[in-house]
Design a protein around this nucleic acid. Structure first.
Lengths: 214, 214
DNA sequence: CGGACAATTGATTATGCTCAATACTGGTGG
DNA sequence: CCACCAGTATTGAGCATAATCAATTGTCCG
């Protein structure tokens, strides 16, 4: 991990210069930017919390891990998105760079502005939507949800570029690698998507895909 | 639904008199308290948002519903807990009283204090923990998680009083009624719990139950 | 070109769902 | 007070979806 310097997180407090609690004024000082290579850890379960992170470029997987190896990725964080909030003083999740990634680092206290509240709310709604996917959708529907969501976050180009492995997708969707693979093959055979490569997917029938999830 | 009056939510802003954005000072005026009978709706999908609620007594189920009837309860809210945050200006979830329930009602703007941020964070972490349950746990483990969680929130008396039906539990855990019923019978046969009645469960082997979930 | 990892595909198994029947419970009215 | 009824819960039998186990195939680096 390499460290640079920047100040783009000042934007977080641009609208409202009145913060919460201790620190009333948004940080005007430069915030450090940290670069991680693919697979590198950003923080881990049990580690002391206190910083929050905004993705500048790349993708971050945020997950909980059990002793027996079961892993649940609660979210992939993409540019502009914020993560790292902790309930207690230690993290209960791992955060890792999926691909080469850079994040800006901010003090949790200073960053508690109106816009970081928005970020927490965004995480909450995203998690709640994902609860429905995990609790009530079949494998094919989960994949459809995933592709639609990724496409939207990548600009709606109907061409999804995956930086994560099938294993990451599986652990995000509560499935196995094999089921993810079979599901994508099946969507491709049905003509809903085209697998240009394993990691580059064209959505050829967006409406049908949408109809699958509601 | 019947309306009373109170002001206990003023506590939300006691510590920090500086609010976020528009409204700087916590509301000192009385906040309305609303009572709902079992099964009554508090708000519904599509309804205009803007109020947040704190449970005074009773239990609230908060869920998303699909056209084909599939339902996912993201959370049960119990006394002291806060719900009703919405991302857009309309709700994307239903909220209903599980049993006779009273809640205090607060303006979303005024209520955005440091402590309501805590409430949002609490919802977020709870949702993230639940994602693991839905994505990676077997039926028996989900039930164990559920019972442990409920017992903790009811004071750790090892005697869980359920006000929700098996169907509610199923829709919370991503299972069917039958699987919930079978799972509880199985835990009872194994001696881990005792079903004093369908709605009153004694946890006889808390450690074994705990070991099931990690 | 070789090697490690990633992805796909197949065969079989298992967990939980669906369909179905029966039992239990609490409230209501005769 | 008791019988009845509707909603709730339990249990069983068979089935379907996704997991597991296993074998290839593909791809990216060095």
């Amino acid at each position: 991990m390499t460290i640079q310097s920047s100040r783009e997180f000042a934007a977080l407090a641009r609208v409202t210069p009145v913060g919460i609690g201790r620190q009333r004024v948004a940080p005007r000082s430069a915030n450090p930017v940290v670069n991680y290579v693919a697979g590198e850890r950003i923080f881990e379960q049990g580690e002391r919390a206190g910083k929050i992170f905004m993705v500048k470029s790349g993708v971050v997987r945020f997950y909980h891990l059990l002793a027996d190896g079961r892993r649940q990725i609660s979210a992939f964080y993409m540019p502009g998105e914020v993560f790292g909030f902790a309930q207690k003083d230690t993290h209960e999740f791992f955060a890792e760079a999926v691909e080469d990634t850079s994040v800006s680092v901010h003090d949790a206290q200073e960053a508690l502005t109106e816009e970081s509240v928005e970020a927490v709310l965004a995480s909450l709604f995203s998690a709640q939507r994902h609860l429905f996917v995990l609790g009530r959708q079949l494998a094919g529907e989960r994949l459809a949800s995933f592709l639609i969501d990724l496409d939207k976050r990548q600009g709606g180009l109907l061409r999804v570029e995956l930086s994560m492995t099938r294993s990451d997708i599986a652990d995000y969707l509560g499935l196995t690698v094999e089921t993810v693979s079979r599901g994508l093959s099946r969507l491709a055979k049905g003509g809903l998507i085209r697998l240009h490569s394993a990691r580059s997917i064209e959505i050829t029938k967006p409406q049908v895909l949408l109809d699958m999830v509601e």
